[in-house]
Write a protein that binds this DNA or RNA. Structure first.
Lengths: 339, 339
DNA sequence: CTGAAAGCGCTTACAG
DNA sequence: CTGAAAGCGCTTACAG
């Protein structure tokens, strides 16, 4: 079952088998054929861990996700795994369930496998210093989606891949303005989250570009869930004059708001315009289908893998901050303003 | 950075450091304290791969998932990772995207890491012989959710963890019968899938128990998606006399059907009863909230990890087939029959 | 309680 | 083109 057994059976040295294994041109064609046949016959399977140990390299990358049950992050994970697999790396999975304590544990355990790098979609409020303590400065790190909190640590270099939240919200708002809407709310999300703050900025950018002063009452906060968005739909309709459109924090909120409006006798997509953010699978099949900002999480996963492997290949790279483009996907939830 | 460095710095042998590392009582308290302080000072991180090589054990389990973007499987993966982590194992992730070819590739690559076992949620139509060829007979295997196709292979022992599709559908149907419904359709799914066949059997069991002969016209086939279920809602209403309730293949179908019925002027949850299967997050916040069969995917993931580790500990175990219980979660989508 | 030696399965110079 | 030897970072008998 080891390379030794193959060598003995073929009457060659271990070194020769090793060369065959890695396709070296040094070994004679006949020898190669003999060795390969014997490996097949014995059902030999390569021990990459042993090879890695000797070569002082790693073929694993650790992927730590805050919330795998969210399709956005699950898609991201699938993209990471796909791209790493194509480069001959294997993915070590860890999930933190949004708990910084669990994240610390998971990172510690994964570090013992000396990964070539770490892709981290951080738990809420995990800090730079936490992460640095867990993984040290030797292992390449890419942080996805949300910034680590707390002060930067001098000399601790890592990459960040985020979404262009501001431009996405600006595009969604801009489209509503082009459709004639003038009273546009920003609905949902926690103002304390960096992504919500960024999206609100984009929304305000667009309004100001159109010469409209954003009203504080148009900012409605909710947990970023369908459930709470549904419950808070009335907060939109009690405004006087009521908005004719809402830019929602994300798709979950947008879908919840649509249900809430129906409950209150409104017809989203007919007499009220709504946009989302994320483009989760349900967005396309909502009633009506949801106009939303697509973030292409699977593609982001592939991109994250690329960035990390670049850093692993060039350890002295300064920390990069990549903001991935997003694009507006128009569907039927955004009618022109009534009248 | 290695155990050697720590030993030298402390003036002890590598063996002593190794004993400290694994908490052996053999080593003197003072020595232990000295060594531990030095490890902390140098930022030593254990190399588990090297230890595994020497001990001829593995601390990794491979997890191969057919479709990570489906929240059901993503939750399952999270449960597996959680349980494995608690036992000191790390999860090697692979995703096949429902492609048997990709699954073969992924399994091959993961095998080179000599995992302690494999948890496989197989791609559609991947066969026993495919999988046996990829992983051999030495590595413990647990198959989740759908059976491998093709003839069994003598001497190839593995475990299977599935859902009790039949009992789940039977419970849902039974509840509708208890509410007074007599004309109950089975809506959605492809009859060629084993899960759809099993669920239909449970549905028929319940009808027959109630002395009702299932009508062929009550079986309506659709792709298992919200979109197609929505489009096919009329197939239910053209029946004469029309059913008053539908047991749906899964939640996606049930939610699609609800939308379709609304479109056709019916009020699901008021004048029509609907049940789902899976209990995806959206089920609880639908309008109306959906009565459904809960499969608890995260818990199934933990269970899969348990089963696999048992097999790994007892290699001679005969193949087990565990059918996980499911339970009916009643919500508002199932009113008593009208009149 | 601690140390010297061998070995896990592989690769890498170095000879020939 | 092939072989003998050393070594990756750890653990495991075996002495003492």
């Amino acid at each position: 079952m080891t390379l030794n057994d193959i060598a003995r059976a073929c009457g060659v040295s271990r070194a020769t088998v090793s060369l065959v294994l890695r396709g070296s041109p040094l070994v004679h064609t006949d020898t190669r054929a003999l060795v390969e046949a014997e490996m097949l016959r014995q059902g030999y399977v390569y021990n990459r861990a042993a090879a890695n140990l000797r070569q002082r390299v790693s073929s694993a990358v650790a992927l730590v996700i805050n919330d795998l049950s969210n399709p956005f992050f699950a898609e991201f994970a699938a993209g990471v795994d796909e791209a790493l697999g194509a480069k001959g790396f294997v993915t070590l999975l860890g999930s933190s369930n949004e708990s910084p304590a669990r994240q610390r544990q998971v990172l510690g355990s994964l570090m013992e496998h000396h990964p070539a790098g770490i892709i981290l979609s951080p738990a809420e409020s995990s800090s730079v210093s936490d992460v640095e303590f867990s993984i040290g400065r030797q292992t390449p790190l890419l942080v996805f989606n949300r910034a680590l909190t707390g002060p930067a640590s001098a000399g601790f270099e890592y990459d960040f891949l985020g979404l262009d939240n501001r431009a996405g919200a600006r595009a969604a708002t801009g489209r509503l303005l082009a459709l004639g809407h003038r009273r546009i709310a920003f609905f949902g999300g926690h103002a304390s989250s960096s992504s919500c703050r960024e999206r609100r900025l984009g929304y305000q950018d667009a309004l100001r570009d159109a010469g409209i002063e954003p009203q504080a009452s148009w900012l409605i906060e909710t947990a970023p869930t369908r459930l709470e968005a549904n419950a808070r739909a009335d907060a939109l309709l009690v405004l006087d004059p009521a908005p004719t459109a809402a830019v929602c924090y994300n798709d979950a909120v947008a879908l919840g708001l649509m249900l809430g409006l129906v409950r209150l006798g409104r017809r989203p997509g007919t007499d009220f315009a709504i946009t989302g953010f994320d483009d989760i699978p349900e967005a396309a099949v909502g009633i009506p289908p949801l106009t939303t900002v697509s973030a292409a999480p699977r593609e982001r996963g592939r991109q994250a893998a690329e960035l990390l492997l670049q850093r692993a290949a060039t350890p002295s790279l300064p920390g990069r901050c990549v903001i991935a483009p997003v694009h507006l996907t128009e569907r039927e939830s955004t009618p022109a303003v009534a009248g």
